[in-house]
Write a protein that binds this DNA or RNA. Structure first.
Lengths: 190, 190
DNA sequence: TGCGTATTAGGTCAATTGTCCTAATTGCCG
DNA sequence: CGGCAATTAGGACAATTGACCTAATACGCA
């Protein structure tokens, strides 16, 4: 469908702009201009800014869900799968240095705006948390699985934040190695 | 001086509002209302929003600088001083859970706005980094001092981010213990 | 072909924004 | 006391915002 395409284009453009500029600083006009449609057409597809945010979060949720599902199928080793997650910091290094973590920065911003959608945004982080918890459980550390998951998640968030602050690629590489070593250590205990 | 007081009140109110709502989402009217002065009076003290931001960052810089200096005087043991830093996560837990880290969230926001003041905001983070580097140097790990400093700094940032996301006090306590244990381990190596 | 729905364009609206100005008030100093 | 500078008040300004409407167009199906 051409219509679905336009709607999808809007969501994609909004996704990128919310990431690069933040939700609050991105206007209808910005998104409409990025997709090169009129504001009227824009309003036909999304009546409020919150509706776009909702669609963007849905897209991010399903994108990440698909990514995690791919890793589940790709490797039978949970430690390897966790490594895939951690290495996002390397794979997306350029964007993270420029804009930070898409999940963390959105969550933080919506919390400050006290926005209705913040619960939904948190679900993306929870998706990661629960997936990581499953991986650590499969590694045999059921008792500490969620604590380990939160540990890796917060560690990654911290690296993303400082990567953006100091634009230091060597730091990112160093920390990623440390996280991977930590995961190895934990997985060899069991 | 009464005049200095008004100006200081404005900076204090702006500081709190920038932290709680973000810089972009805080308007002149918000700050003026918080101090209960007219917009005209406000304009007398600060002609642009960027001027207020500049003053707020200056205040945050000197506040943190004073805090670090106090710790330097208070304890002769670098490991103890680092522990003071880490424990901010506990001391300021309520605010961090609500609004995240004041330094990290401002840095992230200004980076997304591509704001002129972002270099100055980064200086607050650099202040922490350099202070932590000095502590680790005194601990005897000169070679890795800056890497250790960035490690502790990013770790704390990550904990703050996830604390805000999941509002989980137990997680914060757990991670702070881990950081302190890690600092102990590093300091006992030397 | 032509009809009806889906889509697009462009303009309007009140509200809010940062910025700026002028007039009134305060308070200090001679 | 009077005068002058510092401070405060309140309004005006253009620009931008999210939201809304109507008219024109495109398109699928009979």
């Amino acid at each position: 469908m051409k219509s679905g395409s336009t709607k999808q284009q809007i969501v994609d453009a909004a996704d990128a702009l919310f990431y690069a500029q933040g939700f609050g600083e991105t206007s209808f006009a910005d998104i409409a201009q990025a997709v090169r449609i009129s504001r009227g057409n824009f309003y036909y597809h999304f009546r409020t800014k919150d509706e776009i945010l909702d669609a963007v979060i849905d897209k991010r949720l399903s994108d990440r869900d698909e990514m995690l599902r791919n890793w589940d199928e790709m490797s039978p080793d949970p430690a390897r799968r966790i490594a895939c997650f951690v290495r996002i910091l390397i794979v997306n290094q350029a964007k993270i240095i420029a804009y930070g973590c898409p999940v963390g920065t959105l969550t933080t911003e919506l919390a400050k705006l006290d926005h209705d959608a913040q619960d939904k945004a948190i679900r993306i982080m929870a998706l990661f948390r629960d997936w990581l918890t499953r991986q650590f459980s499969e590694l045999g550390c059921s008792a500490d699985a969620e604590a380990h998951a939160l540990h890796v998640l917060s560690w990654s968030q911290g690296v993303a934040t400082l990567a953006q602050t100091f634009k230091d690629e060597a730091f990112v590489a160093r920390e990623v190695d440390q996280i991977l070593a930590w995961v190895d250590k934990v997985s060899q205990k069991n």
